Amino acid sequence: MALPSEFVVVKERARPLAPDDRREAILEAVVPLLREKGRDVTSRELAEAAGVAEGTVFRAFGDKESLLVAGVTKLLDPEPFRAELRRLPHDLSLEDKIAALVEALRGRFREIFEIMRLFQLDGPPAPREGAREEWIEIVRDILAPDVERLGVPVDTLAWYIRLVAFGASIDRVSARPFDSVELAGVIVHGVAVP
Rank of each mutant, 00 (worst) to 15 (best):
M1E: 07
L3F: 02
F7A: 10
V10A: 00
K11E: 15
E12L: 14
R13F: 12
P16A: 14
P16Q: 11
L17R: 12
L17W: 06
A18C: 10
A18K: 14
A18G: 11
R22Q: 13
R22Y: 05
R23L: 00
E24F: 04
A25V: 11
I26G: 07
V31I: 14
V31H: 02
R35P: 03
K37P: 02
K37C: 08
G38C: 03
D40T: 11
D40L: 07
D40Q: 09
T42E: 10
S43E: 15
R44L: 12
R44G: 10
E45C: 07
L46G: 04
A47G: 02
A47L: 02
G51E: 07
T56L: 08
V57S: 04
R59N: 11
R59H: 12
A60V: 06
A60I: 06
G62L: 08
D63N: 15
K64S: 09
E65H: 10
L68Y: 00
V69C: 00
A70M: 09
A70L: 08
L76R: 06
E79K: 11
P80I: 00
P80M: 05
R82Q: 01
R82H: 12
E84G: 10
R86P: 00
R86F: 09
R86Y: 03
L88H: 05
L88I: 15
P89E: 12
P89R: 13
H90Q: 12
H90G: 15
D91N: 11
D91H: 03
S93I: 07
S93C: 05
L94R: 04
D96M: 03
L101T: 00
L101I: 03
V102P: 07
E103G: 07
A104F: 07
A104N: 02
L105T: 08
L105R: 13
R106G: 09
R108E: 15
R108F: 05
F109H: 08
R110G: 15
E111I: 02
I115S: 01
L118V: 01
L118S: 05
L121C: 01
G123R: 13
A126H: 10
A126R: 14
P127V: 06
R128A: 15
G130P: 00
A131V: 06
A131Q: 13
W135E: 14
W135Y: 12
I138M: 05
I138N: 01
I138W: 04
V139Q: 07
V139A: 02
R140D: 04
R140T: 01
D141K: 09
L143W: 05
A144S: 14
L150S: 05
L150Q: 08
V154S: 09
D155K: 04
A158D: 02
W159M: 13
Y160A: 02
V164K: 06
V164I: 15
A165D: 01
A165S: 09
G167K: 05
A168R: 04
I170K: 11
I170E: 11
D171P: 06
V173A: 15
A175I: 06
P177K: 14
P177I: 02
V181Y: 15
E182Q: 14
G185W: 09
V186C: 02
V188S: 03
V191T: 14
